[in-house]
Design a protein around this nucleic acid. Sequence first.
DNA 1: CGGCATGATTTGAA
DNA 2: TTCAAATCATGCCG
Length: 362
Amino acid sequence: MDDQTRMLAGLAGLGGLSQGDVGDPDSVRKQLGQPQQDIGDILQQIMAITDESLDEAQARKHALNCHRMKPALFSVLCEIKEKTVLSIRGIQDEDPPDPQIMRLDNMLLAEGVSGPEKGGGSAAAAAAAAAAGGSPGADGGIEHSDYRAKLAQIRQIYHSELEKYEQACSEFTNHVMNLLREQSRTRPISPKEIERMVAIIHRKFSSIQMQLKQSTCEAVMILRSRFLDARRKRRNFNKQATEVLNEYFYSHLSNPYPSEEAKEELAKKCAITVSQVSNWFGNKRIRYKKNIGKFQEEANLYAVKTAVDAASVSAQASQANSPATPNSVRLGGLCIGGRMTFNLRLSRARTGVVAMRQDSSY
DNA sequence: CGGCATGATTTGAA
DNA sequence: TTCAAATCATGCCG
């Protein structure tokens, strides 16, 4: 409270008069009486007055208002004012919109931090996802929602801070206006001056706001770069996912190229993206091919596994069902121990042209 | 910490 | 566009 009073007094002082002129009738008297009063003394008194309690200050104000010399003081102040106003005038009347703050505003709007509710946020997230895209494999749904959640968090903090600032600003403005109105009984203050004071306060607060906006922008930038980097970060798939993928791979060893639909299915089963499935098969094929021996054990394992699974399935389903799974167990089983290669491959199946290509054998 | 495993990215061919 | 192949970068284990 004391600090605030001091600040108010300080700001009020910007109007052209120091606080000592108003607050302390003694000092005023001394000044009028002895113009040569030591400046150090006056400063001392000014400092002292800011340390007084509100009640004390109130009492002094009252004393000042009732002082018999008040009209004289007032006219002196008016005179001083005449002079000072001349030097103040035209210093900072115009107030063009700060280009810096405009830039920050635009960015926050584009990122969906400011602006309308949810819609903006997801739009920005979509934009970020689009920016992240371009390279093969960027439909990362998980990071996407993660990003959105973080953005929403930033957004919330930003808005609550902004609200706080605005509230503080209007409170402070009211305070100052009341103070000035009250002071206008003692010293000459024109409405125009009050206006200017309000403008000054708003400028101060908007510079604080700019800091908020700036740090929010930074936070969004950091979040964004993390989000983009996250694509590069590698995290092993969980065991179950690897199992599903391996199962498919080894049971389709003769042609381990899942169709788009199959990839989607696998992606869903493994809770990963289609492009991750594609990556996995790409890696698996090349690594299997490079070192079949190393994968032999794994191949056997999965062949047995699928065989067992298939057996139990077919046991459950009565014989009526014809073997509707063409790729299957049998192929997987055949692979065991053999010099299994997937040297024949269907290419461009999508176009319907079933072109066969001879791959090198390994 | 070193070295292998593994998911992602890049490059170039078809 | 898809794929093979090479490469990168991180995860993980001894």
